[in-house]
Design a protein around this nucleic acid. Structure first.
Length: 256
DNA sequence: ATGGTGGCATGGCCA
């Protein structure tokens, strides 16, 4: 089973890219982030014509998450973190082919010390507490999405720029990610690749992609129970080369 | 140091 995550930065704009990519990559499950659309406007018909069922939790302008699946039913759908009041649509969970899928669009945080940064850390703490229960209920768990955290120095183009005090790489953000790892969740890309320099997001500004000034912040975490089934992990850079791309590119995990 | 680009919405926020 091929499981993918992609922050599309507006599904309105990126729907043609998504459909083209579904056709070429043939993933079984796709978690989308930043759909930026209300549920009533979700293009489930166009996506169904490509062979995928979809569930979604969106809002106008900001945030928004969706899960697509082909062949298998999408069951036991849950939007948001239970018990954590949040107007922002950032979480969607569902069970597909016996695997619990948790799609997350983690808060960006803007700048270390800002109000949004505090919200990011509170949000990650709530996510941790919920996932602790979720993994007990569903040992076969995949948590994937835009984490807005680069796990370590290999995951940034320049560790001097992206340092302990920078947003996306600060000590507290990385500690929050380590707490998720401590639940028995593993960065599947790192299970299978040691080398650095493989990125999933490049700033639109300053020709970030052309100069490969990226960071790896889109992650697929797999639980202990799935560890032995992780047969391939990859980042597909191609959609980032297309005309008018998302600033993120898809990341994938193949379970054997 | 500041602002650079893109999306949404049409002035300013968010990333």
């Amino acid at each position: 089973m091929k499981i993918a995550s992609w922050n599309v930065n507006s599904l309105n704009v990126r729907l043609p890219h998504l459909l083209q990519w579904l056709q070429s990559a043939q993933p079984d499950v796709v978690a989308l982030q930043e759909t930026k659309m209300e549920d009533a406007k979700f293009p489930d018909t166009a996506i169904a014509e490509s062979g995928y069922r979809s569930v979604f939790s969106g809002q106008k302008t900001y945030n928004g998450v969706a899960i697509l699946a082909r062949r298998h039913a999408i069951e036991d759908v849950q939007a948001g973190i239970p018990g954590f009041a949040d107007e922002q649509k950032r979480v969607l969970a569902a069970t597909i082919a016996g695997v619990r899928i948790v799609d997350v669009y983690v808060v960006n945080g803007q700048a270390v010390g800002s109000e949004k940064y505090d919200y990011k850390l509170r949000w990650l703490a709530a996510l941790h507490d919920w996932l602790k229960e979720e993994i007990a209920r569903h040992p076969k768990l995949v948590v994937l999405g835009d984490f807005n955290i680069a796990p370590d120095a290999r995951d940034v183009h320049d560790p001097v720029v992206w340092n302990d005090d920078s947003i996306l790489t600060s000590t507290a953000e990385r500690a929050a990610l380590q707490r998720l790892y401590a639940l028995g969740l593993h960065d599947s890309y790192r299970l299978l690749h040691d080398e650095g320099g493989a990125f999933s997001w490049w700033d639109y500004r300053q020709a970030g992609f052309r100069r490969d000034l990226g960071v790896r912040i889109d992650l697929v975490l797999a639980s202990d129970a799935l560890h032995a089934s992780c047969v391939a992990a990859m980042i597909d850079r191609e959609p980032r080369t297309w005309d008018r791309p998302s600033d993120h590119t898809p990341v994938l995990l193949e379970l054997g």
